[in-house]
Every structure is written in C-alpha cells, then in structure tokens.
Design a protein around this nucleic acid. Structure first.
Length: 668
DNA sequence: GGGCGAGAAGGCC
DNA sequence: TTCCAGGCCTTCTCGCCC
C-alpha cells in the first residue's frame, strides 16, 4: 500500500489499480496461480466511478488517516515510554506463557468450496466447469475451476463474469446446504460430541480423548474423519490439527483442498511455525487490521507482534494488544467454551436503491416480520431495536432505540422501526436492516424448570410484557416453596395460558386494526371489553362447565365476565382512569401503559392461580412515572453486560486515544 | 469525575 | 448491460447520574 498518498482516484501512477485495495486479490485456497495484477486491474476498471467505488475511497482515506495518526503517536513515544511498555509486554508474555496448554489436540475441519461442491453433487454436469453459487450481484462461493480465474466468494457476479466469461451461475439453496451440513455434523459428533460448529461448513473438534482412547494420532483421526465425511456426503474437506483452535484453523488452510496439516504439540515447533506466518492468516485479522499493523507499525508476521509488543501496548487497547501478543506466541483457545450466547439477532435485505417512501415502508414491514419470526423461532425477546440503512451511496447509518419492554412482536418492531425510518427521510436506500439486542436472558438462561414460563413469555405477544412484570413473575415462581411450580404443573397450565394469550393476541391485533380509525375513547372501551373477555376465556378453561356462549360475542360479554369471575375481579378502570385492583391512575390517553398494566394483572393472576401463591407485586410505577416525564430516561436495567470472560475481543480495536474520525455519517 | 447505558460505527467471516 | 451480502460482535463516544 502506498502509505500517505492520496486515494486511488487521484493517483497519478500509470497503474492506478495497484493502489485499489480490493480484497479480491488476497490469497485464498485454489488461487495460488492467479494473475493478481490482471484481477486487480479488471476489478478496478469495472468498479471505478461507481458509488461503491467512491465509498471505498472514502473508507480508504479514513483508514489512511487513522494510520497516519497512529504513526504520529508512534513517533512521539519516548524511549522511556517504550521501555515502560516493554516491561508490560515482558510481564504479559510470562502470564500468557503460563496459560500455554499443549495437552489438547484440536482439529479444525473446513469443507472444500462447500456450496459449490454440494451443487456439483446435485448436478454432476457442473463437474470440471468454472461455477459460482450466487448471482450477478453477489456470489457466495466459487469452485476451484473458477478460482483459477480469480473468482471468489463475496465478489460481485458481474465482475466474476468479466474475469471468467464462461462462469456458470447457480442460485443459492440454503436448505440443501443445511442438509449436507447436518450429515457432516453427524460424523463430527462421533469424534467429539461437543464439537463447535462455526458455520455450515466449518467446525472445531477436541479430539484429545478419542486419540487417547483409540491409541491413534491426531493425523490418523483426521484422515479417518475426512474419509467418513466423504463416504457419508460425497464431499471432501480439509483439516488442521494443532494444540489449540487458532493454530488448527491456520493449519486446515495449508493443504486445501482435500488435505490436512498437523502441527506437533511442542513449543518450539509452534514458535517456528508462527514465526514467519503472515498476520492475515490469523482468524480475526482482516484487511483493515492487516493494513494498520503493516503500515503503522511495520508488523507483517506473527513473530513481529511479540518483537514490537511495546508499540502494540502503547497504541492499542489492552484487550487488542493482549490478543496480538497471544497470537505472536501461538496461543489460542484450548478449552471447550460453553455455548455461545448470541447478543443480537437481525435481518436485512438489499434491493435496488429507492427513495420511494411507500416502498421503503413496505420493505421495512417485510423485514420486521422476518425478524419477528426468527425471534419467535429462537425463543427470544429483546428491547433494543436498531435500524440499519445503506444509502444509495453505500453510506451505512444505524439508528437505535431502546423500548420500554421486551418484545418479539412484528407489530412492535415495525412500529418503532417506522419511527426511526421516518426520521431519516427523505433518503435513497439500497439496504434496510433491523436488529434486536438486549435479550431477556436472565430468564431464558435460568433453570430449566422455568422453561414453560419462558415459553409463555415468548409465545405470548410479549409486546405487552413489562420487564418489571416478568421479574416479579419469575421471582414469585422461584420463591414458591414446595415445588408447586414443578414442570408438570407448568405443563398443565401452559395450555390455557397459551390459549388465553393467543386469544388475547388476536384480540389485540383486531383491536389495533380498528383503533386506527377510532377515537381514543372508543378504543379504550373496546380494549376493556377485550381484556375482560380474555379473562373470561381463561376462566372457562379452568371450569369447563361454564357456558360456551360467552365466547361467541365478545362485545356482549363484558358484564357476564365480571359476574362469573367474582373471586378475581376483571381489570376495570374506575372513572375511566383508575385501576380497581391496585389503584394506579392512568388516563385513557396512556394506551400502551394501560395495556401493559392490564397484562401485568392478567399474568399475575394466572401465575398466582397456578402456584397457589398470593404474592402480589404492584406493577412498577417507575416506568409510568418516567413516561409522564417525557424526557426522563427509563430506569436503568442491568444490561446484558459484556461477558468479557468468554472471548478475547478480537475483531475490532481502536487506538487508545480519541479517534476523532469525523463522522460524516453522523448528525443530521 | 467516574461509572454506566445508549447509540453509532467499524470490522470480520 | 448488469455495479458489491448478511449476520454478528466489539469498541468508541457522549451524556446522564451519583
């Protein structure tokens, strides 16, 4: 990279493509003999002038600015600074060395050109021909014949076709890939039941035990596993065997395709191996990190990370520097981590750039629905919604909002996403994404006997479930002595809980549809009727003899519901604003709050009936009060705190000083 | 002034 | 001719609160 020079568009060189930082010329398995300059030139020629290209230039300029800034800081370091940082490095090296574990044998399996190989199995006529899975806009993977032309994953199809005019495009079919992936995983499970699936086509296996039990070496197990994978699927894979996952992953790439590489478990072999290894080979170090390390600090190999450790600790955050140093020592994960808990879930779609608001809202609705479906499938509820937009000029914007309650409802997601989008208009957009984070996982991850409560919360349109409510729900349940909240009792109760909830959901949706065209008071009346009816249905299920006619005409049943449910009065707003159960006052215009409030009483009542507990928690007023004070922040929850113990933060890092990266994307 | 949470952005596969 | 994904994670900055 031509450091410090202007961006590529203004480069006066007769070979401007040389400074175009495409990722497509990076060495990847099967691309060894590729004419890199030709690929780079074609990619440059086809990209230049496009909005994508301009955006790349902007990013490139930003990266260069960052590198320059780092260099400046580097130059300002005094020898005593460096000597102090060196002491830190020396100490950390000792500490890290103490954690070195050479007793484990890890195997990394990587399927060869997975999607392309599966497609070739389905259609043998593709064998031997250059082929890519994907379309003209983007390809997901390419077979080895296509890679000889420089075609590779994440490359736009139109560029791939230019590089290889005979390229055959096959559409992506994830169902098929998942099926084959399942077959490979069955094989993996025979060697390590706790194997870590990284993606559809990659996995880590701790084969220490199987090696010992069968008296076989890592190489022999790898050979056997690959052979079983082939006989089960007809697909080839490559494997790496080493003392930790980081090294095993590097090793699996060495003899690709259909090969394996074993790195012996002794320190000097590891250190020799790592000494000349380019940093880019390490998982977690990508294009940007590679450039920063090389151009700001002159670090190209893993060994140099240790040699220049003082600079790393001077310029990077502690966690980033620790990561780099451990890489330089050839250290990596050796334990089987507990199941990674996801932090967010998202859905996004790219389409032709448009500024048509109606179209944008309709895309938004589709995505909200998809996200909601995914969340329900995974049993997740969350309270932070982030809208991501990629504008026609490839600028990425994200706008987030934290909701008052945990939800997975598409209505809720869409409602808030619409507000976020509205604030950005007018804008021409080519991608919309929605992400939900801050999961309700204290409950999700709590003891298994609470599964049905979780299910209840999740399956219910949780849009109206307040955190406080859930917490009290949970606590009440767990405090209930004598195991009256056993799994069995939940099972029994779940049926009618679910029905009530589903009924209520339907009612809610119906009422919402009507509401849009109704006056506020009328809406409130209707809601009262529906609330009363939901309780009634619940009651009917408990007492099957109750008249069936109740359900037929909800609007006519409210008073009936009251009369047949005397021991637990239905929720009713006295004088139109006061809850008869707890006395809290909420004017009719506080529609959402009133809905939540009634939900709370409903849930509490069901809970109490099941557990026999009469413990009652008044729904928190603090949020309601917070609402009244329009600008006050909601009471801080314990967030899903960064679980720093789980993984070394790797992928992204920044210098310790201020970034001062003028955020053009910021602030409107 | 430090701790903390929310929002935004960057980065990797 | 066609003009660059989708998902997830981490860190940073800023502002509020104690």
């Amino acid at each position: 990279m031509d450091n410090g020079e202007s961006s590529s568009s203004t480069n006066n060189s007769s070979r401007p493509w040389e400074s175009y930082n495409t990722v497509f010329t990076n060495a990847k398995a099967g691309m060894e003999g590729v004419d890199k300059e030709k690929v780079q030139r074609i990619v440059y020629e086809m990209s230049k002038g496009s909005k994508y290209f301009q955006n790349e230039e902007r990013k490139d300029a930003h990266m260069k600015q960052k590198i320059d800034h780092m260099r400046d800081r580097c130059a300002k370091l005094s020898s005593s600074d460096l000597s102090n940082y060196q002491k830190v490095v020396d100490r950390r090296v000792l500490e890290l060395e103490a954690t070195r574990d050479l007793s484990r044998i890890w195997l990394h399996v990587d399927m060869d050109a997975f999607y392309a190989a599966v497609e070739t199995l389905s259609d043998p006529s593709l064998k031997g021909k250059p082929m890519a899975v994907g379309g003209l806009s983007m390809i997901s993977t390419a077979n080895y014949e296509a890679r000889k032309f420089g075609v590779r994953a994440a490359m736009p199809g139109f560029i791939a076709r230019k590089l290889c005019p005979d390229l055959i495009f096959v559409p992506v079919d994830f169902t098929k890939y998942t099926r084959y992936s399942d077959l490979t995983r069955k094989v993996f499970g025979n060697y390590d039941p706790n194997f870590i699936a990284e993606s559809l086509d990659e996995a880590y296996l701790d084969i220490t035990d199987v090696c010992r039990e069968r008296g076989l070496s890592g190489a022999e197990i790898a050979e056997e596993l690959r052979s079983f994978v082939y006989s089960e699927t007809g697909l080839t894979c490559s494997a790496g065997v080493a003392a930790n996952r980081l090294l095993a992953k590097v090793c699996s790439d060495i003899n690709k395709p259909n090969g394996q590489f074993v790195l012996q478990n002794d320190r000097s072999t590891v250190m020799t191996f790592i000494s000349s290894l380019p940093v880019r080979k390490i998982g977690g170090i990508g294009k940007v990190t590679e450039h920063i390390l090389k151009d700001a600090l002159g670090i190209k190999t893993c060994e140099e990370m240790v040699q220049k450790g003082s600079l790393l600790y001077a310029l990077f955050s502690q966690s980033s520097a620790d990561f780099f140093l451990s890489v330089g020592l050839g250290l990596g994960g050796t334990d089987t981590p507990r199941v990674r808990s996801r932090k967010s879930i998202s859905s996004e779609r790219t389409f032709s750039a448009t500024g048509d608001e109606r179209l944008l809202y309709s895309k938004l609705a589709e995505i909200a629905e998809m996200l909601s479906q995914d969340m329900k499938k995974e049993g997740l509820t969350a309270r932070t919604l982030t809208l991501k937009l990629k504008t026609a000029s490839f600028e990425i914007r994200s706008r987030a909002v934290s909701l008052q309650r945990y939800t997975c409802s598409s209505d809720d997601i869409l409602k808030h996403a619409t507000k976020l989008l509205k604030a950005e208009l007018p804008v021409s957009v080519r991608l919309i994404g929605l992400r939900m984070s801050q999961f309700l996982d204290e409950i999700r991850n709590s003891d298994p006997s609470q599964g049905t409560i979780t299910k209840f919360i999740v399956q219910k349109d949780s849009s109206r479930q307040d955190l406080d409510d859930i917490e009290s729900f949970d606590i009440d349940a767990s405090n209930n002595e004598g195991g009256s909240l056993s799994f069995g009792s939940h099972e029994t109760s779940y049926g009618h809980l679910k029905d009530v909830v589903e009924y209520e959901e339907r009612s809610h949706i119906d009422s919402e549809e009507v509401i849009t065209n109704q006056e506020c008071m009328e809406k409130e009346e209707r809601r009262q009727v529906l609330e009363g009816d939901a309780l009634l249905i619940k009651h009917k299920e408990c007492k099957p003899d109750t008249s069936h006619s109740m359900n037929d005409n909800p609007n006519a049943q409210n008073t009936e519901a009251v009369s047949v449910f005397p021991q637990t009065e239905p929720l009713f707003w006295v004088d139109g604003y006061k809850c008869v159960l707890c006395g809290i006052e909420l004017p009719p215009s506080f529609v959402e709050e009133r809905q939540e409030h009634s939900d709370f009483h409903l849930a509490q009542r069901l809970q109490n009936e099941e557990s026999g507990s009469s413990s009652s928690t008044t729904p928190s007023k603090r949020r309601i009060l917070g609402k009244e004070k329009a600008n006050s922040k909601p009471k801080k929850q314990k967030p899903d705190q960064k679980d720093s113990s789980k993984y070394i933060p790797i992928h992204t890092f920044f210098t310790k000083s201020n970034q001062n990266s003028s955020n053009e994307t910021q602030k409107k």
